[in-house]
């Protein structure tokens, strides 16, 4: 018989309050609808990435199976599961972007930042990640920096964008 015992919550009071605000927007028996905003809240409070424990805490708080939270957390590329730099660059290499030259975009980004896909610059400023289609195929090739989409990329355009970050 598996045991049952009470686990203390991982959330701080402010995180809890913020999640509660989201929960309130949905019917009481559909708390789990708040999973995406809750993961954002938790990710922000944890320096920009999600630990397994923090996803578990979200699952327990929203009364949903843990694996269901992992599903959401790993599906969307805005959730990160490793420590990251201050700015996240997500570059799409899916079909449309690839056909429109994402290979060149990737190699330019790697050269300019001096890191490979999946790595973070030594000064912890940028993390470069390869992602699946971000549903902006119309503007392929594209990348997302933090929450902003940048489309119809060229190496020059990339330099301009990255220069904008101190």
């Amino acid at each position: 018989m598996p045991e049952k015992s009470k686990q203390p919550s991982l959330f701080s009071a402010s995180v809890k309050a913020e999640i509660d605000k989201w929960i309130k927007r949905y019917p009481a028996d559909q708390k789990r609808s708040a999973v995406i905003p809750a993961l954002h809240v938790v990710q922000r409070s944890n320096g920009g990435w999600l630990t397994t424990e923090s996803m578990d805490a979200v699952a327990d708080y929203l009364e949903m199976p843990r694996i269901a939270v992992y599903e959401v957390g790993t599906f969307y590329s805005m959730f990160v599961h490793e420590p990251t730099g201050r700015h996240k660059i997500n570059v799409c290499t899916n079909v449309s972007c690839m056909l429109c030259g994402s290979d060149e975009i990737v190699s330019h980004l790697q050269k300019r930042l001096g890191i490979k896909l999946g790595e973070t610059t030594p000064d912890n400023k940028f993390t470069l990640r390869e992602v699946e289609c971000l549903a902006a195929c119309g503007g392929a090739p594209m990348m997302q920096v933090n929450r902003d989409y940048h489309e119809d990329l060229t190496p020059e355009k990339i330099d301009e964008i990255l220069d904008g970050f101190e």
Partner: peptide, 25 residues
């Protein structure tokens, strides 16, 4: 009635599993 397996990741990276090392019970 207990969700133990799920689909994590997306596209080429999609996988079926428990995400963390865990048995199906």
């Amino acid at each position: 009635g207990i969700m133990e397996l799920g689909t994590t990741g997306r596209g080429e990276h999609m996988e079926i599993g428990t995400y963390i090392e865990e048995s199906v019970d």
